[in-house]
């Protein structure tokens, strides 16, 4: 195996692109959009753990991100430091994810979906109505961004780099996780849950752990969200918010590493950039989703790969090259 495979070259190019982004973008507004894409990508990657690899579709994940965001925001408002607030936020989110998992794993398929939907709505309801704790509809302001190791994250550039670091960590752990035996067993529970049970795997435990991992990254995304917006309100826990992240995963391509990232990019760009030019941007977003589902039901990233392969094969056939009978699995 040579050192510079096309895949490694692509990864290196993507990294270079991401690291130098603030330099060639220049305008802080677009750097901020890039930061948003990255933390929504972290969120979508987290959700993808259970949607893509676990086959468990959740409509309540915005609630988990909101729990992290609210815990940190309320602790910061009470005068605690950033480190302790964020740490507590992650712990609380993990605990909430465990409860979430125990309740929702009573069912799979539609049952799972409905329970997660209900839990998401309960979290939203608590945030909205328990106004003595959460300040209700008025939301909670976060007074400033942290300055880890003395580097202030107040500027668009520094916040982008911090988000990029978290994002890269998320991508790396995902990549390692899915190659691991545990990742394989999670895919096993998705495809053949009964056989996995027959083979002696504890399907429930595997799913439970997957939801914890997924909840952890949702919580991290929630923290980035509040530091970015410096504000949180019950809107982040709405059904729409959960559905949006699910759409990112599904449109980009479930059970892929790049899919959720591409999905996050599409949604964030439509919402923030295109909406400035097209009033009916919701319609455009809808049309894009319909097109993706029609022509690439497996999602944008795997779909593009398939179309590219087909096109390439046709081209090479014209050149007289006999194509391989079975295509290598991606």
């Amino acid at each position: 195996m040579s050192f510079l495979t096309p895949q490694r070259a692509a990864i290196a190019a993507a990294l270079l692109l991401l690291v130098t982004l603030p330099i060639w973008v220049g305008n802080p507004y677009y750097i901020n959009v890039a930061s948003q894409i990255l933390f929504f990508a972290v969120f979508a990657l987290g959700l993808n753990v259970i949607v893509g690899y676990g086959g468990l579709v959740s409509l309540g994940h915005a609630g988990l991100a909101a729990i992290a965001g609210y815990t940190a925001a309320l602790m910061l408002a009470a005068g605690h430091g950033h480190f302790i607030s964020d740490f507590a936020a992650i712990l609380v989110t993990l605990a909430a994810s465990a409860v979430f998992a125990v309740l929702s794993l009573r069912g799979t398929g539609i049952g799972f979906l409905m329970i997660t939907l209900a839990i998401g709505q309960i979290i939203w309801g608590i945030l909205y109505r328990w106004s003595s704790l959460t300040n209700g509809d008025n939301g909670v302001n976060v007074s400033g961004r942290p300055a880890p190791f003395g580097i202030s994250l107040a500027s668009a550039d520094s916040f982008y780099y911090a988000t990029l670091l978290v994002f890269l960590a998320a991508v790396a752990t995902m990549a390692v996780f899915f190659r691991s035996p545990f990742g394989a067993s999670l895919r096993g529970t998705r495809d053949q849950a009964r056989r996995m049970t027959a083979l002696g795997y504890n399907v429930w435990l595997i799913r439970f752990l997957a939801i914890l991992i997924s909840g952890f990254w949702s919580g991290v995304a929630g923290l980035l969200f509040i530091y970015y917006n410096q504000f949180i309100s019950p809107q982040v826990a709405t059904l729409t918010a959960s559905a949006e992240v699910l759409l990112m995963v599904i449109s980009g391509g479930t059970a892929t590493l790049l899919g959720p990232i591409a999905g996050a990019a599409i949604v964030v760009i439509m919402k923030n950039v295109v909406s400035a030019y097209i009033v009916r941007w919701n319609l455009v977003l809808g049309v894009i989703f319909v097109l993706i589902i029609t022509f690439m039901p497996e999602g944008l990233v795997p779909g593009s790969v398939r179309l590219w392969r087909t096109a390439w094969r046709k081209l090479s056939r014209r050149d007289g090259v006999i194509p391989a009978k079975t295509e290598p699995t991606p």
């Binding site: 939301g139 917006n229 504000f231 009033v279």
Partner: peptide, 21 residues
């Protein structure tokens, strides 16, 4: 003119757009 979509995060992003861009 900027459409916030009627939610706080949208309002924040659109304000940034108006101020920074």
């Amino acid at each position: 003119s900027a459409d916030t979509g009627g939610n706080p995060a949208g309002a924040k992003t659109k304000t940034q757009e108006l101020v920074e861009r």
